[in-house]
Each structure stands twice: as structure tokens, then as C-alpha cells.
Design a protein around this nucleic acid. Sequence first.
RNA 1: CGCGGGGUGGAGCAGCUUGGUAGCUCGUCGGGCUCAUAACCCGAAGGCCAGAGGUUCAAAUCCUCUCCCCGCAACCA
Length: 647
Amino acid sequence: MSSFYLTTPIYYVNAKPHLGHAYTTITADAMTRFAALMGDDAMFITGTDEHGDKIVQAAEKAGEAPKAFTDRISAEFAALWPKLETEPSRFVRTSSEKHKEVVRTFLQKVYDAGDIYFGEYGGHYCFGCERFYTEKELESGLCPQHLVKPEYISEKNYFFRMSKYQARLKQHILDNPDFIRPERYRNEALAMLDSGALDDLCISRPKTRLTWGIELPFDPDYVCYVWFDALLSYFTAIGGPDSPEFPERWSGGRHLIAKDILKPHAIFWPIMMMSAGIPLYKNLNVHGYWLVRDAKMSKSLGNVVSPLDMAERYGIDAFRHFLLREMHFGGDASFSEEALIGRVNADLANDLGNLFSRVLSMTAKFCGGTVPTPSEDTDVETTLKALARDAMLNYQSLFANARFSNALESLWELVRALNRYVDTAAPWALAKNGDTARLGTVLYTLLELMRKIAVHLWPVMPRKSVLMLEQLGIEFSSKTTRLADEADSFGALAPGGKVAESSNLFPRIEPLEEAPAKPTEAAVEAKPAPAKGPAPEPVAQIEFADFQKLDLRIGRVMACEQHPNADKLLKVMVDLGEASPRQILAGMAAYFTPQDMVGKMVTVVSNLAPRKMRGLESQGMILAVHTDSGLELLTPGGPAAPGAKVS
RNA sequence: CGCGGGGUGGAGCAGCUUGGUAGCUCGUCGGGCUCAUAACCCGAAGGCCAGAGGUUCAAAUCCUCUCCCCGCAACCA
């Protein structure tokens, strides 16, 4: 029995769980269940990441101590997973004592290997850019953006020698095509390694700046950088590298992540393991993003509906099926209630659910609700069984390669074939003609293949799978079920067994009311603009005196052009009734062309401190409002002179 | 030349590694069946596979160039 040990990222607790977290965890759960059915010793873990600046800030904002804050949010995450029918074997927290010990031991090991050194951080700091520049990035000693001499700042820190292992990692990726998948992310990782020498990773933060972290074993004045800390949680969950269970468990180690954290997992993490002399993970599975459709498209109430509500509304199994079927693993996909309903109706209600309904009903009607004994196969059955075998083998191999959508598509070829078989074999006609031998064959073939489908679906829809099998009179156990055996065998369903007399696995869902796909301008105007979207965040009240600090003025746009060195910025010259026009940079290039702007009356925050952006100075801010269709300038409703004060 | 992804019937996508009848789901139209959750089955319409060159007996698939979208990074005061 080989080990299958999968991790989700440990989720950062500065925000509540959302669709992305749900997708990752559900996928991890499905992969793990699949591995179990393939005979592996399978488990997956998840957890929460609780260190770093942002956590401290979020805690402060919530008026709590970091510890209390992280305890609370972490518990929220932990409580969520059972609701999604996911069963993480363990839940790691980076604030646990065990984890701290694992991190310290690991750091010491890497330190002893000579891969950590104490050095100066940064160097040339440009205040305009708020970042450090390396020597080679500077243009004749000046910041390339602002053309000023950056200041030399130093902070002593510990560094991890990543470049030392760069070539080895590259070779490993080249030698192992499945190490990072899908391939697009493997290419991206290779590109990261090809774009020059890796910078050594700064793995410490001085305690003078940050105390909420794990202290370095070799220097009590520093805490560990969050990524270094977080990645090691994958070891903590199985007791750390020195635990007895580790070698076996880790031999099947693999990770599931979203594309935004590719670099730490594809580059930092393997190099950390190389340094510590630990074998690398088997593979890294990278998925894309769910794009959530604009709230205005949904029903009358118009609120953005939480995907977790979706699970409750349409059923967790349907939700899981949708997520795995709709997204081609690796790419982005869009989430919408309409799409979810469409999938549930088409795949689950019409195809799969209806298949169970019609076949069980016929079994009840024509065979007294017991599994009939099959007799001779005809060519039809032979062909059908060959198709079934292909479908199952394809499903298994695609699923094993994280191509869940294609896998389900493949299995559905069998579902549809069975519906077709019902039509062509026409059991009702056989029953009418008293051809019980043939009837027995047809119904038995159907029931047995339905059993196989149900078993294959357990990783995706655990509850419904068990229910389907129950309806077929079978008690399911993941311990004894082996998918690999299913493709090449036939007849496990025992004739004479009782089956359910009817079935309504996936009731059809009424489609949402038609929302105008693209409301015309007139339609938009006609709408009384009801409260839409999520409730606005409550904003702290301010005193009138605070408001008076703002100097709002009406201005006229004299000229406008694209910022020469920035995609999103327009350089707008605004007449505020002053001696010369103000130069203001506005992030509106995506919404307005320079020609659109010229001549417009705009509202300007005129006493905002100047700020340089991509080399040009902005001397104010042009106010605008986000609308359904984009962005609208805030402009006076009647004549107003440039420079007029807004109050 | 910052990095990367993508452009395939009305919509959403697969196919491209390993060239050879362009496929799936939804939608539309016509028909069939009656076991079933107004479901299921059959058939039809609809695509010069972004564009241009090239390699080849043969290109959606390989090579080159161009155009257009979308992420990420830098700036959204």
C-alpha cells in the first residue's frame, strides 16, 4: 500500500473562507478519496497560517490580540470543512508548539548545512518606489523611475542560499514531467529558474519590527519569515522529519495550490528540502481561479450569493460536481448560479438521476424490485461493456492526472450510453412480450453498470454515491472497493438482491428568472437602482473638522494624454483656476481615452500631497464613481467655474 | 521586446505533446418513445479551427510573423 499524502495550502487567517478555499479543499478531498479507492493509504491535511505582519494588523483592526484573533478565525475554517463533506485527516496551525519545534529543528539543519548566512538586506532604497534596487537595476546609480539617487539603507538579516540549488532543481523538474502540473505551470517554474540567478531568500525579520513569529534557533533577536514557516507546516502535520511515520508518509507527499503561490511551492520549497536532505514531494498540482460573475446579473434581490450558500441551496454533492466538472484543472473558470443550475439539471437530474429513476422503476415494475438473473449477452451488451470499460479506464487515468473535468466527461459517456441502451433495448416491450430472459439481461446489465458508475463517483459526490449504492442494495465501503478492479470485471451485483423501487436523487431545479444578459442603456435608466451588491462596509464617522481638511475643487480638463510609462494611468492637465493647470495622474486609462477627458468638468481633491507615479508627479486626485458599466466622472450638475470650491 | 495564458459552429469548452474524417455540453429546429425527474432517444441546421506565410502527399495540430483578448508584476492619490 503506497502512501498518498496531499496538502492544501494552510490558509491565511486574515480573511474568512471563500469560494477559492472551498474549491481547493473539495478538490483535495476528492483526490484523496480517489486515491483511497485506488488502494493507497490516503490522507489530506489542511490548516491555517497564523504568522506575519498582516495577521497582526488584522488582529489590531478587530481589536484583539493576535492569539485570540487567530484562534477564532482558525476555528471558523476548521468548522467549515465538514459542511463541504470534506474530511481532512488533520488540521495544522502554525502557532502550535509542535510546529514551532519542527521549524526550529529544520532551520538548524539548514543552518548546519551552511546554507544560511548573516548579511545585509537590500541596500539602495528609493523612497518614491518604496523598494530596494539592486546594483544592476540602477541606471548610472539612479532610480530608473524617479531618476534620483536612492538612499542606502541596511538591515542585517539571515539569508538562505537558494542559488546554490538552482541547477539541481531545474534538472529535477526536467527529469520529472509530472513534478509540476499542469504543464503550463511547469513551464512557468522553469522560466523562473532560467531568468538569471535566484536571489537568496531573506528568511528572517528582526524582532524590533515583528515579534509575532517563530524565533530563529541560532539567534533570539530574529523571527522566521512567514513562507519558510508556512511551508514547513506540511511536515508538521505528519510529525516532522524526525518522526517515525514521516519517511513512509512523505514518500507519497504532494501538494495542491492555486496559481498565485506557485513560486514558493515550485522554487523555495523544493530547495529547502534539498538543503535539509529530504526527498522532494511527488508532485505539485496547480489550479486556476474562479471568476465570480458580477452581482448585477443575479436575481431580483441582486446580492452576491456566497458559494457556501450554494452548497446548502443545491446540495453539497451537486456543488462538488459542479466545481470539479466545470473547471478544467489549471485554467480559470467562471462561477455563476445559472451555470450551476445548468450543470445540475443536465448532468445530474436529466442524465444520471433520471437513469436511476427509470431503471429502478422498471426493476420494480417488471421484476418485483429484485435484481434479475442475466442470460446470454447479445452484441449490444458486448459493445456496451467495451464502452463501459473504456469510460472507466479513461476516468481513472484522467482523474489520477488531476484532469477532473475530462474524467467526469468520460464517465458521462457511459451514463449517456446507458440511457441510449434503455431506449434501444426497450425493456417495457420485452416485459410486454414476456421475454423474461432478455429482460433479465438488459436490466441486470443496467444495474451492474450503474453500480460501477456510483462507485466511481464516490470521490466527487460521496453522499450521493453512497445513496445510489444503497438504492442498488449495496453497502459501500471505501476499504474494500477498488476502482482498478471495476473496469475489467462484471457481475459483482448479486442477482436476487432487493433494490429501491424508485429514486429521486437529483430533483430538477427551476432555472432562475431570465435576467437581461446585457441590459440596454434605457433599461438601466429605467431601473430605480435598488440596493444592489453587498452591504457597504461600515466606515468610521468623522468630525466636520476632518471633512474641512479636504479641499475639493471643480476643474476643467485642458489636456489629457496616456502616461508614457504606465498602462493604467492617464496624465490629466486640469484647470483649477490657478495660474497654471495641475498635472494629475488618474488610474482611469481602462475606462476613458484621453479624448474623452478633454473639456470635462471634474471634481478634484486639490490639497492631496503630491505623489510620484512611474516617474511623473500627481498633484491631486480626480473623483469618480464605479458603476455597473464602468466608471463615471463626478461632475457638477450645472455651470461651475474652474476653481469653485465644493462643500 | 517584463512573465504567462488564450483566440475552434449562437454560448461555454475539448482536441494540439504522438499531423490524416473537427468533437463535447448547452441552445435552436424536426421526429421518435413512453420505463422515467416535461426527462430520454434519433436526426438536422450551424465552423474557411483569429490572420498571413512556411514545412509536408496531408496542418486546428509543427515552424515564422502579425493582429486581438485575458491574467500576473510595475504604477491604479
